[in-house]
Write a protein that binds this DNA or RNA. Structure first.
Length: 277
DNA sequence: ATGGTTGGGGGCCAA
């Protein structure tokens, strides 16, 4: 199955293209977003780490890109999520998973009734111990709240975002080297497995790209040559409830954006759906 | 085992 998205056109009618991207400051990278939108023509774009309060969100720039629906939930300096859509959305809301009141979740409903959840899971700091490191505790609490929220829910839904966890051995450059590194510890992966079983969810990306194949969506800024070293992790995900798996048409990871200037350390994940009834 | 870089915002903190 294709790993590169067909640019712009080339999609059959009824196909909806959804992209998710941790942009690491939407204001700094607004030109990169515009370039990505021009090249890939997503119908819905979910952003994380926008790092901007809502009254300073660059809504006009997104309207000029063709997104009539601009939904943002941000705060000064940190976190922040946004949904940009060419389709009308309703039932806009957010939830306070983890209980800190940080801006890490935004949800809205697509015209066909499917719920879309955009989430930015806490990174969790450096030490994988909830006692020694409150940021790791917050990450675990956030995940537990997500699990409780989705357990037993029947409604069709799409969950996207920066989960800050790379669950599979092939989702990291070295499983052995990262076993005690936050994002790939057994405890975090177990919680992500619980979350996946809760709805239950289905991994739209591994639906097309075999789990045996290495796949990353993030490369650290701290590598002098990210492309040559290729020490990446798959932290960004698109999940769908099981009933929507049959509507999946294609996925792509826009790895080339990691080389743009200035680059986010994350790259977009793109999923095409056939959402005709 | 450590340090490496980026972003926001004006201090270091977060990633």
């Amino acid at each position: 199955m294709a790993k590169t998205a067909k640019k712009g056109g080339g999609r059959s009618p009824g196909t909806v293209r959804l992209a998710t991207w941790n942009i690491n400051s939407v204001r700094l990278r607004i030109e990169s977003v515009a370039r990505f939108v021009a090249e890939q023509r997503p119908d819905i774009l979910c952003l994380q780490e926008t790092k901007v309060a809502d009254d300073k969100f660059p809504a006009l720039a997104f309207r000029e890109m063709g997104f009539d629906t601009v939904l943002a939930r941000g705060e000064k300096s940190y976190n922040g999520v946004a949904i940009l859509s060419r389709l009308p959305l309703d039932d806009v809301a957010f939830e306070n998973w983890g209980g800190k009141g940080d801006c890490r979740h935004l949800t809205a409903r697509l015209p066909n009734g499917v719920a879309l959840h955009n989430v930015y899971v806490p990174a969790g700091g450096d030490i994988p111990d909830a006692e020694a490191n409150p940021k790791f505790g917050h990450k675990l609490a956030f995940l537990r709240d997500m699990i409780a929220r989705f357990r037993g829910r029947k409604e069709p839904a799409i969950l996207v975002g920066d989960f800050n966890i790379a669950p599979l051995e092939t989702d990291v450059w070295s499983h052995k080297a990262l076993l005690n590194v936050v994002s790939h510890t057994a405890g975090e992966v177990a919680l992500l497995d619980d979350l996946m079983a809760a709805a239950p969810w289905h991994d739209a990306v591994r639906h097309f790209i075999p789990p045996e194949e290495q796949l990353y969506t993030w490369w650290s800024y701290r590598s002098p040559d990210w492309a040559a070293a290729d020490k990446g992790r798959r932290l960004d995900h698109v999940w769908v409830t099981k009933g929507l798996a049959a509507s999946l048409r294609n996925v792509a990871v826009a790895r080339e954006t990691r080389g743009w200037n200035p680059a986010s350390d994350h790259v977009p994940v793109i999923v095409d759906f056939d959402l005709t009834p």
